[in-house]
């Protein structure tokens, strides 16, 4: 079976003025379909850059990234947008919902760019909201929802396209412990249903929900291990 994610000798070099910053330095990682991976590392370790590349928001300076066997290198912005829309769901630390727009419409957003009929968009978005336990809150706007609920809307938005990969960048960073565990339980459930989940976090107890822990330092993989004592 072809692994879902294959990163070979991944380099990312930024220029900030005259200074060259090497965010990734020959990183190698392979993630299989259906895995639940936590990526950890201090700030500046390169984990955000890695997430951007894995999410097809950015491209490596050098090296190869294959997503589901497809080489991402050399693709045009619109082709990357297509991949993000079809294969990837994003969950961000700051929720990133569109303000003054209902939960349903936020969850519908990825489908808007697929040219589906409004009826189908709504039906699929409602199902996704139901799955994250927000039935009855479809018409609430982000300001009318708690942080945990907003993050659930964001998860519903990520789910609505039935992606094969869900990328969560510190999804619990802005949440209290109770909400954090609820969110993690939802992610765990999704993983159990077959979606590959990659999670970036600082917190050990959050990382403990995952099955595999990759620690990044200075743009390279420092350690890569299976988590024995998973939280449930």
């Amino acid at each position: 079976m072809v692994p879902l994610i294959v990163c070979e000798d991944l380099w990312k070099v930024y220029r900030v003025g005259d200074i060259e910053v090497q965010a990734l330095r020959g990183l190698n990682v392979t993630i299989n379909d259906g895995e639940f991976v936590a990526i950890m590392g201090t700030s500046g370790s390169g984990k955000s850059t890695l997430m951007n590349i894995l999410g097809c928001l950015d491209q490596p300076s050098k090296g190869h990234y294959r997503l589901g066997g497809v080489e991402v290198e050399g693709l045009q912005p619109d082709q990357l947008a297509e991949i993000r829309n079809r294969k990837i769901g994003f969950v961000f630390q700051s929720f990133n919902l569109i303000p003054r727009t209902s939960a349903l419409e936020n969850a519908q957003l990825p489908l808007l760019y697929r040219g589906l009929s409004l009826k189908e968009q709504r039906a699929r978005a409602s199902t996704a909201l139901e799955r994250v336990g927000l039935k009855g809150r479809e018409h609430h706007t982000p300001t009318q929802l708690s942080g945990g609920q907003q993050q659930r809307v964001a998860i519903a938005r990520a789910l609505v396209t039935s992606p094969s990969l869900l990328l969560a960048d510190e999804p619990t960073g802005n949440l209290d412990t109770g909400s954090s565990y609820e969110i993690m339980a939802i992610l765990e459930g999704l993983n159990r249903d077959g979606i590959t989940v990659i999670l970036v976090t600082h917190e050990v107890d959050i990382a403990a929900f995952a099955a595999r822990e990759i620690v990044i330092k200075d743009g390279q993989v420092l350690s890569d291990r299976a988590i024995q004592d998973r939280a449930h």
Binding site: G55, L57, P77, D78, A81, E82, R84, N85, R86, F90, N96, L97, I98, P99, L109, P110, L112, Y113, R114, R157, T161
Partner: peptide, 13 residues
């Protein structure tokens, strides 16, 4: 930011 969100979920140029 909204534009960024839209792009992330697959809006083309």
């Amino acid at each position: 930011r909204e534009i960024g969100i839209r792009m992330a979920v697959g809006a083309k140029r």
